[in-house]
Design a protein around this nucleic acid. Sequence first.
DNA 1: TTCGAAAATGTAATCGATTACACTAAAGTA
DNA 2: TACTTTAGTGTAATCGATTACATTTTCGAA
Lengths: 352, 352
Amino acid sequence: MSQKGNVTIYDISKQLKISTATVSRALNNSDRVSQKTRDLVLKTAKELNYQQNSLALALKSGKTNNIGVVVPYINHSFFASVIRGIEEELTPVGYHVIICQTHENVENEAKQIQTLLNTHIDGIFMSVSKTTQDIDHITNILNNNVPLIFFDRKKEITGVSSVTIDDFQGGFMATEHLIKQGCKRIAHLSGDLNLDIYLKRYEGYLDALKAYNIPIDRDLIIEVNSKLESGAVAVQQLYNLPKKIDAIFSSSDYAALGAIQELRAREVKIPDEVCVVGFSNEPFTQYMEMPITSVNQTPVLMGKIAAQVFLEQINEKKRMTVEKKVVLAPELCIRNSSNKSKIETKKGKVRI
Amino acid sequence: MSQKGNVTIYDISKQLKISTATVSRALNNSDRVSQKTRDLVLKTAKELNYQQNSLALALKSGKTNNIGVVVPYINHSFFASVIRGIEEELTPVGYHVIICQTHENVENEAKQIQTLLNTHIDGIFMSVSKTTQDIDHITNILNNNVPLIFFDRKKEITGVSSVTIDDFQGGFMATEHLIKQGCKRIAHLSGDLNLDIYLKRYEGYLDALKAYNIPIDRDLIIEVNSKLESGAVAVQQLYNLPKKIDAIFSSSDYAALGAIQELRAREVKIPDEVCVVGFSNEPFTQYMEMPITSVNQTPVLMGKIAAQVFLEQINEKKRMTVEKKVVLAPELCIRNSSNKSKIETKKGKVRI
DNA sequence: TTCGAAAATGTAATCGATTACACTAAAGTA
DNA sequence: TACTTTAGTGTAATCGATTACATTTTCGAA
């Protein structure tokens, strides 16, 4: 046994009076060992309770079987669920999932990536932080020949695969739904438009209005952050306008909730006077007394697909040639906050 | 440069025509190198952009700087938050956090632990699964000399540190609060009593009743799981009793919510006719139109403390001698579902 | 029986660092 | 001056596996 008390192939080789090379071959099912020796080695390995030292293997092969996941915050429902999906898909094939938080800060993001690269990770999954503009720290991943998969929040970098939902379609579906409810003055609470996801949702909103010949009113479009207060403030602002609104499509469930609270404080009837739709399908949206209509991003599925894309990518012979962009279908979960006429949940279409 | 294109100490030694031993010493601030050589090595290392290979180091030292966290589900708000706390405390000191899910299944738990041990983790944090009775797979961690820290859900094993909240106190506070609201027939929806946490909350409930001379009525105690439906079913059962209840203390926020929905369906007024208190302070409890009173387990803090206990433990000279049991104070967040008289949130006391 | 191919096994380098031990050179001491 | 001490550096083993290449054994064909 070794210093640390672990059984090594050397122990087996000593016991059987054969070389470590043969032991290694037997354990790895090489065809360059006799059946007799192989059986003997396997039997002895079991007896001694031999466990392959993954560190030695990693050093030799350069493969650690660890992958890193970089997200703004792990305890945000969406990210936690994506991570769950990744874990469930990769653990069965022998990977370990290392998680890192950026706190929506580029410097943290860069630091986390650097230390991940230094531990010789086999791949990185990430959702970029809101403050990320410069992408040198990200292309650095590719320079190290480490596969990178974006999920949800991505940057356009050639050669990098991504799994997202169709945010445009999500924004479109949500807005169209409101239009079909008879709404004509539909406000939009957008997120930070530097992030692609919020931009796309906004564009979906615009496109739906155009498609149904509803004039676009810039006063009805307000940029907010994902906080209750900012949804409430937005409503105050909207109610200072001369003409009343009859619907709100918010890119954030939190802002939607804040808006609802403010509407309720003003004794506005939901959904009769104003319909509200959020985005993300945060757990609380379905638990409310008046459940909130929202767009489900199917995060667990997103994580699983991301993991599959990763596995495909590393199994490809011609590396780095193909990038894969999977776009999942958003799912509109219609609930009481916007449901005047009792319609059911709608699913969008997948694009690959 | 090595095969994989990384700069090694060998590259530095070659360039400076000195031995790798000296390079290593210079990089590690050993006092067995001249200042001149040290400066030269550091300068060259920077020029070549040398990065220490953590795998080689890990193989040599047996320390990987990885720790494992084993939880039932990562995307459950409570666990996600604990993990966040652990990450925030350990990343700054150079650790990486590997996460594993058990899906509340002992076999998965055992398998996850085994693969973690095999990757030579420096420590394991875990919350045991509901189905865990046998603990051989857990003591196996100790046999491998790997530090183990329980959080929230623990088993009694000598030598194992733990960080929990005072569930008894939580149950007591919740019940006492209901009593002070004037409630006399207080039902309890308990969780699986095989789990210590639920048992303690239940005992806290019993003790509070005793302390205020309120008779215990076994009919008012119902074991449920953490699902909305089971809270609703429990209420149905309670309303089949001859005498009406005037409060519910649920060990689960989900069951509490289900109970509230059922009460509302029966047009029972909350909190006037029935007060409701949950447990865990799930995000949704505060977002409801009628926010739900709940016991906050301060999960992020719990993660941070667990990380600190781990760091203390590995820094101790005399290993394995002291176990540390930290018991955090629960915090009763009083909200409308139980607040007849507008009281404020109460904090419990910490025990160490 | 003998030779050659194929099968089985062994030797030793390698992955990239650390470190016990050996050695040289410079400085201090008598 | 001669001898001891110490600072600085080098050699080589080690962590535990894989594997290219070398060598030995086995077995069939002539």
